[in-house]
Structure formats: structure tokens, C-alpha cells
Design a protein around this nucleic acid. Structure first.
Lengths: 197, 197
DNA sequence: TTGACGATAATGAACGTTCATTCATTAGTT
DNA sequence: AACTAATGAATGAACGTTCATTATCGTCAA
């Protein structure tokens, strides 16, 4: 039961461990505990396997990031939840974040309607920022600009922590998260008015 | 003259356009305008070609990021320069940033002394942040934490702009850059002291 | 200026391997 | 017995790499 998922999980592991060149259908079959031909009962070909793996890991990542998400919470609480969930998602499942990065780098995978899938999987995230803009709590910037300063700092920092095996104190993590929250606030004490150089 | 560079440039283009699977030695040779065997006069094998391409693009990226860099400037001016240089580097040469991302995803390439190369190529960047910490201008956080909020916001935002073909107003860009500067200042008006949830 | 010659650079057909994919056959289930 | 699922050897294409051959270059004697 769930042989399709076995294949996807084996593919995820192989990609993370050995990279794109390490993922051959024969090795994948062995890792999944099946014969090579069986893969083709569940996936049209290797390319479709990759596309569906992309959907799979995106959906899983989305689940993790929105863990304990509730629309009833304050915006700051939501931000802290998203930030910490994202940070922990990378550290708790480094292989997943590596694979997402890999698939993101494949031109043939990210064609056409693929980004549409990602957009819907992470729609609440974009909504969260858009709502803050609409309610004039966040700076009136494009959503990606806000995200690059807040949400993405969690992702990037976690990847660095994971890659370089450096440790970060819980208290500092709290401060970074808080700073990434305050920096997008319109009412923060930051002075962003024009000034001469 | 400069056949080695021709090969590296062709490899960079092919990787950006067709991804890892699109880079075969025969296609690469054709793109570089030489015969397949000739590649092996300049590179031991495909893997070494990738490693040396990684060094090449890292060095080029480093040059771009430190364009007009001067130790005599104020810290804020340095930050603005780095931030804008990084932002423009991605937009001016999107294929390079894509290839860097790709090579970053290859387990066999990022082995052993490869990161050491990257570390030295971008040492002034780390120094800049370390200096700010030492002089108590920046928060006393690990350098990657500071970078994730400031320098990396430029990289990430530029990639989003490039990928999704969205446009960002010059003035907003200035504001994001400034915000990413102020958020790492110890003396910013952000309140990062502990508070109850 | 010419031409001959050794040395270096470049070539691309050929090689062995590995790859994704197929399908006749077998195993399992209803 | 009828049907579905799984197998893995077989297949041809594509891959990285090699190397005998050819082209190019620099030098120097005639």
C-alpha cells in the first residue's frame, strides 16, 4: 500500500544524498524496494516523476509551514508562527529543503502551470502579507519585498545553520524573528524617509 | 585565444538555458565552437569542469558585488553599495545567479575545499559584518543572522523580480535597502527586548 | 622568402558504459 | 479462471571519454 509514495520518498532521499546525477531509475527502484519497470505503473516517465515529486514536496512543505495556523490569531503571532515553522522546517527536514532547491533549479520542471501549483500551496502566506499591506500595517511594498525581509530570512538563516552546522541561541533566534517582524511594520520606529547621501 | 573561457562561458549559458541534463560534453563542444575532445585539453573531466566553473562564476560574482568598494567609506555607504551591487548583479546577469544556485545544489561539487574558495572570495563581505559587530554597531548576532536580514534580502528580492518579471520602483528599492540596513543596527529604534506572548 | 620539421593543439569517429524505457513473462488477487 | 500488478532482461539511444589522425604553429637552415 502506498507504493507511489515509496517511490517519491526514495527519490527525495536519493536527490538529497547524491544529487541529480545520482538519481537513475534503476537505483531509484532499488531504493524503493521494487523493480525498475514498476515505476512506470505510477509515473509516465522520469520527467513526470520529477514534476510530481515537486508537487509532493511543495505540498508537504506547505503543510509544515502552516502547522498550527489559525486565522484568529494576531498578525504578529501569525508572523512568529510562520517564521519559526519555516525555520524549523528546514532544520527538521534538511533533505526536503535541498530537494526543493534542486527542483527549483530545473528549467524543464518549472514550466507552465507548475508555479501556479506553488502559488496555491503558499497562497495563505501571500495573503497574510497582502492583508497587512491593505490594512496599512505593513509598508506599501510589493509582497516579495516584504517577504525578502521577513519570511525569507528564516529560510535563509536555517539553511546556513544546517549547511555550516553552526548553532544559534534560542534568544537570538527570537530577536531575529522579532526584528524581521518590526522591519516590515509601517509604524515601526525606522526612519525610511528620503535623506541625502 | 581564451578557449578555456569559451568553454566556461558556453557551459554557463547551457546550464542556465537547459539545466543540468542539458549539459552534455558534445552539446557543450558545439556551443563553444570546438570538438568534444578539445574540452579535455582544458579540463580533466566533466566533474572538474563543473568545479572550475563554480570557481569561475564565484569569482565573477565577487567582482561584481565589490564593484566600487572602498574601505574608506562609511558603514552605511558600504552597505548600500553591497546591497545594490548584489541586487543589480542578479538582474544584470540572471543566468549567472541561476548557475550559482545550480552548482550550489550539486553535492559532488561542494565538497572539501570548495566552500573555502567561496569563503575567501566573499571574505570582505563577512568582514564587513564582523566589524560592525565588533564595533557594537550591529546586533551581537552571528554574521549569517545579520546577512539573512540585510544582504540576502537583496539577492532574494532580485531573484523574485527576475523570475516573476515584476517591477519595483526605485524609491521602494531604496526603502527596502535602508530598512535592511536599519534592522541590523544595535541603535535602531526597534525594541527587541523580551516580552511575553 | 621559402620550406622543412618538431612540437603542440585540435579533431571527431569509435568505444564501453550507463541510461530511460519496454514488454513478454510471472506472481498475486478476486 | 480472469484480471491486475510486478518483474527484470532486453533494447537502442545517449553519455563521457579516448586516441589515432590531422591541422596549426614556431623555429631555423638554406
Amino acid at each position: 500500500m502506498g507504493k507511489r509514495d515509496d517511490i517519491l520518498e526514495a527519490a527525495e532521499q536519493l536527490l538529497a544524498e547524491r544529487g541529480l546525477y545520482g538519481l537513475s531509475m534503476k537505483v531509484l527502484a532499488k531504493k524503493a524496494g521494487i523493480a525498475a519497470g514498476t515505476i512506470y505503473r505510477y509515473f509516465e516517465n522520469k520527467e513526470m516523476l520529477m514534476v510530481e515529486l515537486h508537487h509532493h514536496v511543495s505540498a508537504e512543505a506547505s503543510k509544515t509551514i502552516f502547522l498550527s495556523w489559525s486565522e484568529e490569531q494576531t498578525p504578529e503571532h501569525k508572523h512568529t508562527l510562520l517564521w519559526n515553522n519555516a525555520f524549523n522546517a528546514v532544520l527538521d527536514n534538511p533533505q526536503r529543503s535541498i530537494v526543493i532547491e534542486m527542483l527549483y533549479c530545473m528549467p524543464n520542471i518549472n514550466k507552465n502551470n507548475t508555479n501556479i501549483f506553488e502559488e496555491t500551496a503558499f497562497a495563505p502566506l501571500v495573503n497574510f502579507y497582502q492583508q497587512g499591506i491593505d490594512e496599512q500595517r505593513f509598508h506599501d511594498w510589493p509582497v516579495p519585498a516584504l517577504m525578502s525581509l521577513s519570511f525569507q530570512s528564516a529560510i535563509h538563516l536555517a539553511k546556513r545553520v544546517q549547511r555550516e552546522e553552526l548553532q544559534i541561541d534560542e534568544e537570538i533566534l527570537r530577536q531575529v524573528c522579532l526584528a524581521s517582524w518590526q522591519v516590515i511594520q509601517k509604524t515601526s520606529q525606522l526612519n525610511l524617509t528620503t535623506h541625502n547621501n
